[in-house]
Design a protein around this nucleic acid. Structure first.
Length: 289
DNA sequence: CAAGGCTCCTGATAGC
DNA sequence: TGCTATCAGGAGCCTT
């Protein structure tokens, strides 16, 4: 379940092991892995073959590699279970191998997209005209993420206040702020002592500034853990670590004591998933009319 | 247009 | 033992 830090680890792995290499052949082994590609699997393979990867970029949970001509990019999303692996040619196929990309060089490795639940995938898209980073047009609506130097904090606060929604929904809305998933949302809200159903319009500027700080802290800490492991194993271009290794304060801790006050943590069904929170530190908002 | 709900998928696990 | 139900969840798409 990769969120921003895990995806950034993958991006760094691709930068090291894939950038600059040219594609010799592409095999699409499962149609769902290219379902966002407008032309389907055959077209994806045909158009990617012969292209050269430029330096990979990331926005939120999306990553893309501009092709050398710069007007076209390979877009990738890991979904819930996706992995990008650089493997030796001839290594046994992974059980959920979906796409294989062979290179036209003698380095002896290939790029594999492996994905059990097939929520993720790869696709080719035109770049937004004038984008110097080759931003794929289909993700132009995705907001910059909180680690992006160009993230507009003032605009973010104004947008939050204008919304008629609750704070966790807003954190997960990738058009407001990108890169935050269910896990880091719960962690950030716990740190900020905010209940997930708190209306965004009720957040003061200092409180939303504090929340944003916690989002950055949680992600930076996870990135510090994940960022250290990728280059020791060259096959590990897959975004492991992150929250898998770090201790979580909220997510998954139902009935365990709150690390601040000792009160048993609770889990509530929420949007077909779960929200974990401390009922004492994170008080439910008064029902509004 | 904004907000919220539905749906895609597979494997682990719980429950009977 | 073996079956079924439940859960995990990102984001496009649909409805209200």
């Amino acid at each position: 379940m990769p969120e921003l830090p895990e995806v950034e680890v993958v991006r760094r792995g691709l930068e090291r092991w894939v950038a600059g290499r040219s594609v010799a052949a592409v095999e699409v082994l499962h149609p769902r892995a290219v379902r966002r590609h407008p032309g389907g699997g055959v077209d994806f393979a045909a158009r990617l073959t012969g292209q050269t990867f430029d330096v990979p970029r990331r926005r939120g949970k999306y990553l893309w590699m501009p092709l050398a001509e710069r007007d076209l990019s390979v877009l990738g999303h890991l979904g819930m279970s996706g992995q990008l692996l650089v493997q030796p040619e001839g290594a046994p196929d992974e059980r959920h191998l979906r796409i294989r990309i062979r290179f036209a060089d003698d380095l002896g490795t290939e790029l594999r997209f492996v994905d059990q639940r097939t929520f993720g995938g790869l696709s080719l898209h035109d770049s937004v005209p004038g984008s110097d980073e080759g931003l794929p047009d289909v993700i132009a609506h995705i907001a910059r993420d909180p680690l992006d130097p160009l993230f507009d904090e003032g605009a973010y606060h104004l947008a939050l206040r204008a919304r008629r929604t609750t704070v966790k929904r807003a954190l997960l809305d990738q058009s407001l702020i990108s890169g935050v998933g269910n896990i880091y949302a719960d962690e950030s809200l716990w740190r900020a002592k905010l209940h997930y159903e708190r209306p965004t319009a009720s957040l003061t500027r200092p409180k939303s500034t504090e929340l944003l700080g916690h989002v950055r802290d949680v992600m930076t800490a996870a990135l510090a853990v994940g960022g250290t492991s990728f280059d020791s194993l060259y096959v590990n271009v897959n975004g492991e670590s992150g929250y898998f290794d770090r201790s979580l304060d909220a997510y998954g801790r139902e009935d365990e004591p709150c690390r601040r006050c000792g009160t048993p943590m609770r889990r509530r069904p929420w949007m077909n998933r779960s929200s974990y929170f401390c009922p004492r530190c994170q008080r439910a908002p008064r029902a509004s009319s």
